[in-house]
Nucleic acid binder design. Structure first.
Length: 260
DNA sequence: GCGACAG
DNA sequence: ATCTTGTCGC
């Protein structure tokens, strides 16, 4: 199996992989430094002009300590799938809360490279399975990936890392601000009735309101079961086992937070 | 010191 | 992330 060619827009994210950190002390310094490059306001074509959007799901295989990433590219207007790609590799960094990006980004970049083999243009927006600004050092996975690629990203996590919020209504569309240290760091968004909310936060080059708008746009069509099955099918054709590629939410509803 | 803790 | 057990709603 030879490596697929790496497209030009991915090159800035390739170089850092050679000097990838292995300790939290080093990783923390990188987070503090790269944080300065994050743009938390809209610097993209505008939601009306988005052509393609990529959903990135990350995961871990206990057996073999494998980090994995699945990317699903969609036509933003029709939400029709344009392709999926999956990458697996030994974990370059252990899972430590607050440092997820160091375990997953190498696999994400690899998956994006496979995707660009067939779709040369970079995605207009990337929705990430993890936090963005809603992070102890304001530099979650979505921010990290966005800065490395200098592409618009949104953080869409399935559970809370930090922050507090008022009780959230059970109806679709309900939302509450996620706050930390007197600052708004994200939005808790109910994407479907009686379904666990998503934790939306700014990644790179997109404001919080636009991030919520973009996620809601994708929600009616893409939710966990559909896209997982969809990516699994592609994966089996390529000889892999499992895969994940959801954009939006999973069933259940147990955890909610109360006001401070 | 104790609990919390994206995936 | 993953696994198990029990409960509830459609």
């Amino acid at each position: 199996m030879d490596s697929p060619p790496l497209e030009k827009w991915l090159e800035p994210a390739i170089a850092p992989l050679d000097s990838w950190p292995t300790k939290t002390a080093e990783a923390k310094e990188i987070q503090k430094a790269e944080r300065e490059q994050v743009i938390s306001q809209n610097r993209f074509c505008g939601i009306e002009n988005i052509r393609t959007i990529a959903g990135v799901d990350v995961g871990f295989e206990q057996q073999g300590a494998i980090a994995r990433a699945a990317v699903a590219l969609l036509d933003f207007q029709t939400l029709e799938p344009l392709g999926v790609a999956i990458a697996r590799m030994p974990t370059p960094f252990p899972y430590i809360p607050g440092f997820l990006s160091f375990r997953e980004i190498p696999a994400i970049v690899r998956a994006l490279a496979k995707l660009t083999c067939k779709f040369p243009a970079p995605p207009d927006v990337i929705i990430c399975d993890g936090q963005g600004y809603a992070h102890p050092r304001r530099f979650g996975l979505a921010c990290h990936l966005g800065v490395l690629l200098d592409r618009p990203t949104v953080g869409a996590a399935k559970s809370r890392l930090i922050g507090q919020h008022l009780p959230l209504g059970e109806a679709k569309g309900n939302r509450e601000l996620l706050g930390d240290s007197g600052e708004t760091i994200g939005v808790v968004l109910r994407t479907r009735d009686n379904v666990r909310p998503l934790y939306i936060s700014v990644g790179h080059r997109i404001g919080l309101d636009s991030a919520v708008e973009i996620v809601l746009h994708c929600t009616p069509k893409y939710r966990l079961p559909e896209t997982t099955r969809w990516a699994d099918k592609i994966a089996s054709q390529r000889g892999s086992n499992k895969s994940y590629a959801h954009l939006i939410c999973a069933p259940n509803s147990s955890d909610e937070k109360s006001p401070p």
